[in-house]
Computed example of a mutant assay.
Amino acid sequence: MNIDITIVSKQSEPWFEAPASVYIITNEQIKRSGVKSIPEALRLAPNLSVAQVNSSQWAISARGFNNVLANKLLVMIDGRSVYTPLYDGVFWDVNDVLLEDIDRIEVISGPGGNLWGANAVNGIINITTKNSKETKGLFVEAGAGNERRGLGSLRYGDQLNNNIYYRLYGKAFDNGSTVLTNGSDANDAWAMSQGGFRLDWDQNENNLFNLQSDYYNGV
Rank of each mutant, 00 (worst) to 15 (best):
I5A: 06
I124E: 12
D4T: 10
G170S: 10
F139Y: 11
G34E: 00
E40W: 00
Y216T: 03
N146Y: 03
Q194S: 15
N71Y: 05
E28A: 14
F65I: 12
A59K: 11
I164F: 01
Q29Y: 10
I30A: 01
R63A: 06
D96F: 01
N217D: 15
G176W: 00
V68F: 08
N187S: 12
G176D: 12
V8G: 12
A118T: 14
L154M: 10
N122A: 14
G113L: 07
G137S: 06
N66D: 13
N122H: 12
Y156G: 11
I24K: 08
Y87M: 09
D88W: 02
K36Y: 09
Q52L: 03
N2W: 01
V50K: 12
I77W: 03
L208G: 05
F91E: 13
N162K: 12
S81P: 09
M192G: 10
G64N: 09
A186M: 10
V140W: 13
I3L: 13
N131A: 10
I3N: 10
N146S: 15
G79R: 03
I30D: 04
L73P: 08
Y156V: 13
A120L: 08
S12K: 11
D93T: 07
G157K: 03
N66G: 12
Y87V: 04
D174C: 08
Q203E: 07
K171H: 02
S184A: 12
N146M: 06
N95Q: 15
Y216K: 04
R198L: 09
A45L: 12
K31Q: 14
N146H: 07
E13P: 02
K10Q: 15
Y23C: 00
L74H: 01
N163M: 03
G176S: 12
S56R: 14
G195T: 09
L154K: 04
R32A: 11
V97P: 02
W190K: 05
S12N: 05
D174P: 01
Y83P: 00
V219Q: 15
T128W: 01
G150N: 07
